[in-house]
Amino acid sequence: MKKLWKNKTTRKSFVTYAFVVLAYVILQSIAAGGGMKSSLKGMLVPICAYVVMAISLNLVVGISGELSLGHAGFMSVGAFTGVTAAIALQNAIPNAPLRLVVAMVVGAVFAGIVGFLIGIPVLRLKGDYLAIVTLAFGEIIKSIFNNLYVGMDGKGLHISLLEDKTHLMEDGRLIIAGPMGIGGIQKIATFTAGFILILVCLFVIFNLVNSRSGRAIMAIRDNRIAAESVGISVTKYKMMAFVISAAMAGAAGTLFALNYSTVVANKFDFNTSILVLVFVVFGGLGNMLGSIIAAAVLTVLPEALRGFATYRMLIYAIVLVLVMLATNSPRLKALLARLVPGRKEEGTDG
């Protein structure tokens, strides 16, 4: 145990797990004691969903080193497929927590498949070109779900694009109604489920990062040519990170959507992708604990600023710019390095 504790990465992951568990226990006991405002209570599940979004994007941006501007697209895929599964299985699986788990798995699998398909062309590109193509895919996914009609009746699922051609039988139900999205969702997402999802994702990420594959992914990030020359398959490992990240975002999307009674495709647009990217950069690239804290704080912050009503988004924007300026100022960095010796070497890896 003592040996384990000395290992820096292991220590770091234990601190992260401990933080998440502690946060869950504290929040859950406050909520149980009735000391929580209902507005905050309603945000617990979205916070979990955004935390998972942030750590999964951090896997792509921080660990794999590729800028993705379309992460909300995977969330969208997860939300729509997962909720469709939840509705379709409403009678088959009456147990709500079990249905939630099945829905999240369906969302993750579909998002993973979409991630794989998108990854084939995307991962051939580099830098800003890769970023713009992920942005383009995010917009395409949004357009498709805005025009998708899925209905279910005795004969099974009916899918049509652009207009409602599902021709359902009388007992049928239109699940996805194009721009209207999905309505009448049973809100089966719970804070506990979100907490477990976060733990599972953290477990997957930490184990990946500390494995042979994870080191290969980071080697590609640090120097692609050098990694290639020692026989690391660039496409394979980049794809691995990309698909795992997409699947996690899909599960987060399902969790998120099952917390509301309706879900529309426009919720998962470019701005959502950017929002998640802001969490990742704020928390520090490759730093999972940072992503978790940033996602939670920045989701609650606009709500906490509600007292300032109209000015809150303006304040949010100013805070964003000022933090970026402060954390990147060379003078401030030098000062910090002098105050906290050894900080630099700890901050550089995941």
């Binding site: 802001v278 950069v281 704020f282 964003l320 710019v321 300026l325």
Partner: peptide, 18 residues
């Protein structure tokens, strides 16, 4: 880093819109 500049640009964009 270019990512820090990107986030700052997004912040400026939010600022102008709001």
């Amino acid at each position: 880093t270019s990512l820090a500049v990107l986030i700052t640009a997004i912040g400026v964009s939010y600022f102008l819109q709001n």
